[in-house]
Each structure stands twice: as C-alpha cells, then as structure tokens.
C-alpha cells in the first residue's frame, strides 16, 4: 500500500538545509485573555448578524403576546396562586426562548466549519468560558426584555424588585451552566435543534422549579429571609454544573 519513491539518505537532507527550529514551547496565553478574545469575537459576530438576538427577542415577544391574549384583558386578580402562575408562565417563556438561541454559539462554529480553526488555535477552556459568558449575556438581555414585557403587558406587580432581579439573574446562571455544555454536545450531532431541548430539559427541571418558587416569592414581596433559600439552591446548582462542565468540556471539544 505504501512505498517511498525517494530513498535519499536522511543525513544528506539535513546537511543540505540549515534548519533552525525554535524548540521552546511558547508561553501559553492567559486563560482570561483567551476567554475574553472568544467572548469578544462571538459578540462581534452576533452584533453583525443578530441571528440569535433576533430569534430570542421575536420568540419572547410572541410568547408574551400569546399568554397575554390567552389570559384576556383582565388578569385573574382574585386567584390566590396568581403570583405563582405568573412566575411559572414567565420562566416557561424564558426557557423556550432560551432553547431557540443558546445552542447557537456552538452550532454556528460547526455549521460554518470554523470549529476546526478554533480547535487548533484556542485552549479548550477558553472556548467554553468565552461561550458561557456570551450565552449568559444573551440570557440576561432576554431576562430584561421578558421581565419588562410581563410587567407592561401582563400587569405583573413586583413586590420585591431587587429580589426579583436577583432570582432572574441567578436562575439564568443556572440555565446557562446547564445548557452551554449541552450546546457543545449537540453541535456535533445531527438534528441539533430538537436534540438541544430534549437533552437540556431533564437537567433543567430542578433549577426551573426552584426559580419559579423564588420568583413567586419576589412577586409577592416576601422578605429576604424567605427569598434567600431559592437563590442559594440556584447558586449551588450553577456551581456544581459549572465545575462538572470544566472537567467534561475537553472530552466534548476534542476532535
């Protein structure tokens, strides 16, 4: 199967050339700098194409309008569980909007086949962290839009605004910690869109339930003594999945 055409001895080849190879491994880039580079690159591309942002925002608006129309012009104010229902609706809207946009960061690299160039050049952890930050930013923007729409269109009253913002932010961290690794996994499979939701959903049930409870507390204007518990659970969940992702990402990203 294999034959060498030329049988020139190696010594003459080396004598022919005056080769100087720098044998030093260059200093590895600092993780923070490389992470920031990946984040900036993704942000720049997103701002130019606005693919994920448009999809997320359109989805958010349509969901809120659908819920708003479904509930009619007058919200059921006499319902005891109103706050819980509103919190649940809000997180369902957030979740499904997130499903449409959060896989983008990795799927695009595979679809446009730029993943190879990135794989050869960037440290794997920098890729993961950069995309994690990008997804987090995306989701925080989505949080703000959905919260504003809910308050404006569904007349959701927020009892404890600060706690509300905190639960949304921490809940988004949990969502991003769970879905970023899954996005990297499904980017390398076929039927990516459907698979992303299928793989993410079972892992999102615990944080989703806690975030809904926490948001309901915030809407009702409970004290921090009550509201701190869900936030702590969400933080613990985020931390656990983040650390697991750091260990597992290299296996996902390798060719």
């Amino acid at each position: 199967m294999i034959d060498s055409d030329q049988t020139t001895s190696e010594s003459t080849l080396i004598a022919k050339n005056n080769v100087q190879v720098s044998s030093l491994k260059p200093q590895a880039p600092s993780l923070a700098a490389a992470t920031l580079a990946v984040f900036r690159k993704d942000l720049r591309i997103e701002l130019r194409s606005r693919y994920a942002l448009n999809a997320l925002l359109l989805f958010a608006v349509s969901t809120v309008v659908a819920i708003s129309l479904g509930l009619g012009p007058i919200a059921p104010r006499d319902n005891r569980d109103l706050k819980l229902i509103q919190a649940a609706l809000m997180w369902v809207a957030l979740l499904f909007a997130a499903f449409t946009g959060l896989a983008r960061a990795f799927v695009q690299e595979e679809d446009t086949r730029t993943a190879t160039a990135l794989r050869l050049a960037a440290p794997p952890l920098a890729v993961y962290l950069g995309k994690l930050l990008f997804n987090l930013l995306l989701l925080l923007v989505l949080d703000a839009v959905i919260a504003a729409l809910f308050i404006a269109m569904l007349r959701v009253g927020v009892g404890a605004p600060l706690m509300f913002a905190a639960v949304l932010a921490v809940g988004s961290c949990a969502l991003v910690a769970a879905t970023t690794l899954i996005a990297a996994i499904i980017a390398r499979a076929s039927a990516k869109g459907a698979l992303f939701a299928v793989l993410s959903f079972p892992l999102l049930i615990p944080p989703l339930v806690v975030a809904i409870r926490g948001t309901a507390f915030a809407l009702e204007g409970e004290s921090w003594a009550v509201g701190a518990a869900p936030i702590q659970v969400l933080l613990a969940y985020t931390l656990a999945l983040f650390v697991a992702s750091l260990f597992l990402f290299k296996s996902v990203w390798e060719a």
């Binding site: 899954i182 079972p202 049930i205 615990p206 339930v209 613990a236 597992l248 390798e254």
Partner: peptide, 25 residues
C-alpha cells in the same frame, strides 16, 4: 461513545438536586 458518556455524567451531577428539590414539589 464520548459524547454519550459526557451527557450521562453531566446528568448524574443534577440528580442530587432533583432528590433535594423533588420533595418540595
């Protein structure tokens, strides 16, 4: 094989939270 194993382990990490959260459902 690789991605399947990663997903399996990642899912396993969430199980303690489920056991903790489920009773509050």
């Amino acid at each position: 094989r690789r991605l399947g194993a990663v997903y399996n382990l990642f899912a396993a990490v969430t199980m303690p939270f489920l056991l903790f959260v489920a009773p509050r459902l």
